[in-house]
Write a protein that binds this DNA or RNA. Sequence first.
DNA 1: ATATACTATTACTCTATAGTAATGTGCTTG
DNA 2: CAAGCACATTACTATAGAGTAATAGTATAT
Lengths: 119, 119
Amino acid sequence: MPKYTKKNLSDEAFERLGEQFKAFSEPMRLRLIYALMDGEKTVSELVKETGGLQANVSKHLRMLLEAGIVERRKQGLNSYYSIADPSIFELCDLMCNSIRGRLTAELDSFSAARSSATA
Amino acid sequence: MPKYTKKNLSDEAFERLGEQFKAFSEPMRLRLIYALMDGEKTVSELVKETGGLQANVSKHLRMLLEAGIVERRKQGLNSYYSIADPSIFELCDLMCNSIRGRLTAELDSFSAARSSATA
DNA sequence: ATATACTATTACTCTATAGTAATGTGCTTG
DNA sequence: CAAGCACATTACTATAGAGTAATAGTATAT
């Protein structure tokens, strides 16, 4: 028996994973998630903060809601949205670091080129 | 001065982040990434393993390449692809756990409903 | 009841891209 | 060099979804 066996992922698992990643794949939705890192906010607040149109913000919030990324609480005239799953912060951090890592590597390669050119 | 100030993300940062997430948002690309977790493979091997058409596999590999997620090494007739950035494993794990967490919660709520119904 | 404010939905256009078939490109081998 | 193989690219169709304007719901206030 091997130390580590790669788990078999079903077709459904790949679909589900893809959908989840897709929820994070639009700048507007990332802006919304980012804005909600301060805590619960209303749609109007999010509209102001992201600079989007109300209809578009509502639509993206709906997608985030259906993806299970945010929660909604209705009170009076307002809908209050908040992050449903805190593990999202880690996820975004990790992705940011991954990008940063690659950019740093790229930057280093340029520096290396310059220093070997001037050496 | 506050303990923690949320970093300001530029429009470009949101775009870049979105693009990166988008690279992970298609089942076929996830299949390819998954297949490459064993290590370097040729296109033909990936075609067999994923069950996709060659043209489609090539196209998705190109996207992963441009996103910096995989690397390519050409030798003779073959192109050998491999994961470029190991932090991708963590990323996928985290996303899987996030999904698992929510499914577990959902499952629990059903169990709770049943046990309170039968209590 | 009427008016107003906040949010959600609908209908539309436009763009991006997934899948596919056909073709192109470049090695390699006889 | 001619044939064959691995891979990449192109051209096409079909679908999803982003942005937007207009409209519909729904709660509150007068």
